[in-house]
Structures are given as structure tokens and as C-alpha cells.
Nucleic acid binder design. Structure first.
Lengths: 262, 262
DNA sequence: GAGTGGATTTCGCAT
DNA sequence: ATGCGAAGTCCACTC
């Protein structure tokens, strides 16, 4: 018989001492904790806050972050970012957890009444998270809103076939100079710069006037700045998210109804 | 024997169908749900995102908000603000929950693998939450940083005893005019304005020069603007939080170590 | 360490 | 609904 790994260990309505022991062990082993309990919370730090007793969900994560959630609202009523140090104990017959942050000198103290559920978790989560606004989306956004590049910029063409391939965006600046834009969705490296340079050289052979090359990306790799300057290529930071927002504003991405779920 | 209310109903390692039934009931009754499960998440809306399978904590609240938390980080990896409509079902042998928001047309879909824990909660939380930087703190902040009121403002005295009571702050502006400041921590109403007016009248009787009255508060009540203008009292918005930040910067509120917990 | 800018920011309040 | 500003914003990055 195969024994399945159980990442969840549950205590229902634990006694004060059982809860304390379980919490202390979990904290020392950097496990994730979920508590459903009646509790009061105090925060002292950048501001002060006090939360009177009530039934809430409390999460303490492996990295030392803390969340106190009421039964409504997206955002936690009290919280602590990662990196907390914890103090636990029983005083005046009540279980207390204090989470202290050092760098911003602030703390929350949770004073527990009845604990309904205490779950100790050993979660394994290696799943990649990707947020995507495609390079194509970024291109659309610039076409729709050329001032994203700079004031006075105008798009002449996009996905324009040039000798080595396709130029992302081809335009003209305020002073009438030609502009060639290369877009990267993620960190732009040496490859992206050299690709843009190839287009620039190809166009320079044909049109003998001044051409500017602009690399558009959310960020650029370390150490490629010298290459940029030596090739006189400019860098314009632009995030996929910002592009998405613009597209939505311009209603270019039309979201349809609830199609395609089941 | 007294039967205690149990706001928590727990299923450990539920079957697909048991979980579906439980979730559907909970959603229709607007109860709060906690799930610990292996799941994948897709988001479509303001941006698109995809989260590959992994073990996470999922919270669906009474108000239709959704949180997907990984075992690290303060912020949820995926979420949905309150007011979602839910679709649930089993397709391709997997339990799915889809949360759709109407006004911002966005949705997240959670595709479940193994569910380790399903807790249905009926939380009662009436506890008041208060975030406080006291009126005294605001006063301290203005004394420490008079430019909060306006450039060139100087404090002459605070908590100064005047005929009807104590003036919060008494000062002089850039042009040498007297200034009387009334501070309110919360919304300033008619009472606050009339109180300030009383001080102003009392001082006008003594000093026969021009006096400005400034009401300092994070906001003012509806419909009192006419009263302000008719009494020629000025209004300076200032939040307790901002005051707190200034006090901390000026190190007037000195946070000490970990004293006084146990 | 402080300062800057983005975020599926969220959350108010005013228009 | 839209727009503007604050937030215990958080977070990543630069200086």
C-alpha cells in the first residue's frame, strides 16, 4: 500500500497548551500555519491600530509573513511582511503571538480567544508563475499611443519587413529623424541590441540620413550598457503591464463575456 | 450540557464529489471557505497570468473575494476583489472554480488537483478596527514640521489656554498674520468649525489685527463647506498617517526594542 | 541604507 | 462610472 504524503496536520478546538506547543514547533520548523480563531490584534509601528476580538483567519507563512483576514474584504485587516521574528506565550490565560519586524521596527500582537482550527502545513509549490502581456501587445500599445516612446513620436509602420527580418516599429521623431524600435517583453540582453543594430545598419545603407535606434523593454541585462552607448542605441523602459493598461483603456483588447469555460 | 457553536466544518482529503458538493453549498450560502490543495490558476483581465500546479492556500470569503496564497510572500499570487460570481464544476476529472467579476471584466479559474483540506467557516466578526495616530500626534507633527500647514508658517505656541479652552496651535504665517489652528483626527464637522470660530472671536477682541483660522483634518463633513467660506475659515487636509510618518522621520516617536511584551 | 517607480495595486472620496 | 490621491501600501531596482 502506497502511503501518500500528507502536507496538512490539523488540530480542531485544541487546548491552550496543545495549540502553543504546535505553534512553537511549526514556527521553529518554518512551516506554514493556518489558524481560525477568535482573536484581537494590536499593531504598533508606522501607525498604531487595534482590532477588537472577533473570528478571523490567520496565516503565518514559512518566510515569516503574517496575514490576519476578516470574513470580508480582499485585503488583510492586519499583516506583517516577510522576515518576522516570533514570540509566543501564554499570559493572563491567553495564547499570544507577537510578530516583530526589524528593518521597519514594527510589530503585531495577536491575542487569542478560542481557537477553532489549527492547521500546520508543509506546502510544496514549485509551479512557475507568469504574467503575460505579449510583445505583440506591447507593440499594439505603442502604435495606439506613440507618445509612450517620446512626445512627438509618430509610427510609420510596424512589423515592417526589412532585410534581416521584421522591424518591430518604424517611425519618425519630432525632428523628422527616422526611428527604429526593437521591443522585448522581458529583460533585454546583448542579443536584442545586436538584432536592432543589424536593422539599423541595413537601413543606413538605403536611407543615408540619421537614424535612431530605440530598445524598448521593461529592463536591460547587467553590463550591456556599454554596448548600448557604443552603438548609440537608446533605451526606453516600458513594462508589459503598462502596455496592457493602455490597450484596455483604448479598448483594443475587447474582453468578451463568459465564453469558453465549460 | 452546553453545546458550543462550531463555526468550522472540516473535510480532510475529500473526494472530488464531496468537495464539489461542499463548495457549492458553501458558496450558495455565502460562507467563507479555506482550501489547502494542489491547484493551477489562470487569470484573464487587466493582464493575463498563468500559475502552474503547486500546493497553495485558497480563501473564498463571504463577500465573493478570492485569495490564492503560495507558501511564501505577503501578497496573494492570484486574487479577485469582492463581488465575484462563481462557477463550479468538474471537467476532465478535475474540480474547477471560476470567479468572475463584472464591473472590471476579469476572471480567475482555479483547477484543482488533490485537495488536502476543505474548511467551511461561518465567522462572526463584529470587532471594531481602529487605526490611530492621535490628535496629539498630529499636533506634535505640525510643531515639528510647520511647513505641513504652509510654507513659511511658524508655531508660536500649542495647547495655548485661551478664553473658552485650549487652542491647538497658535502661530504666524509668512506675512506676519496670526494663525489659529484647530486639529481633528477624523472627519471635521460643524462642531469643530464653530469651536475654532469661538477662539477666533475671542482673540479678535484682544488683538485687533487680522487672524486666519485653519481647520486641519483628514477630511470634512458633507455640507459644511458653506459654513467654512462664510466664516472665512480655511481648511487644510492632513491625515493622521502622514503625521505619524513625519514624527517617525523626526524620531520624535522613539520606538524602543522588544520591551514590555512578557 | 534611502530614493524612485510600478502594480491585475487597493481604497477612499469627489465629481 | 471616472478620476485623483493616499496607503502601516508592497516590491524591485538604483544610487
Amino acid at each position: 500500500m502506497k502511503i501518500e504524503r500528507s502536507p496538512v496536520s490539523i488540530l480542531e478546538n485544541p487546548s491552550l497548551n496543545a495549540a502553543l506547543t504546535s505553534i512553537q514547533t511549526a514556527l521553529s520548523e518554518h512551516k506554514t500555519l493556518i489558524l481560525v480563531a477568535n482573536c484581537a490584534v494590536e499593531y504598533k509601528g508606522r501607525a498604531n491600530s487595534k482590532l477588537e476580538p472577533g473570528e478571523r483567519i490567520l496565516i503565518i507563512k514559512e518566510d515569516g509573513s503574517v496575514l490576519v483576514h476578516r470574513p470580508t474584504d480582499y485585503s488583510p485587516v492586519n499583516w506583517q511582511p516577510p522576515g518576522c521574528l516570533f514570540q509566543t506565550g501564554i499570559s493572563e490565560g491567553k495564547l499570544r503571538i507577537r510578530a516583530v519586524r526589524k528593518k521597519v521596527r514594527e510589530s503585531i500582537t495577536i491575542i487569542f480567544g478560542k481557537i477553532y482550527l489549527l492547521a500546520v502545513l508543509s506546502l510544496v509549490d514549485k509551479g512557475a508563475f507568469s504574467l503575460y502581456a505579449s510583445e505583440e501587445d506591447m507593440e499594439k500599445a505603442i502604435v495606439a499611443e506613440p507618445s509612450l516612446i517620446e512626445s512627438g513620436f509618430q509610427v510609420i509602420a510596424f512589423e515592417k519587413p526589412i532585410e534581416p527580418g521584421f522591424v518591430d516599429i518604424y517611425g519618425i521623431d519630432e525632428k523628422g529623424h527616422l526611428v527604429v524600435i526593437e521591443i522585448k517583453r522581458g529583460t533585454a540582453g546583448k542579443t536584442a541590441i545586436l538584432q536592432l543594430e543589424k536593422y539599423l545598419e541595413a537601413i543606413r545603407k538605403v536611407a543615408k540620413r540619421e537614424i535612431r535606434g530605440i530598445l524598448v523593454a521593461p529592463n536591460i541585462a547587467k553590463g550591456v550598457h556599454p554596448l548600448l552607448t557604443s552603438l548609440k542605441i537608446e533605451y526606453k523602459p516600458l513594462s508589459p503591464q503598462e502596455c496592457y493598461n493602455i490597450l484596455q483603456k483604448q479598448q483594443i483588447l475587447r474582453q468578451k463575456g463568459l465564453e469558453g469555460f465549460f
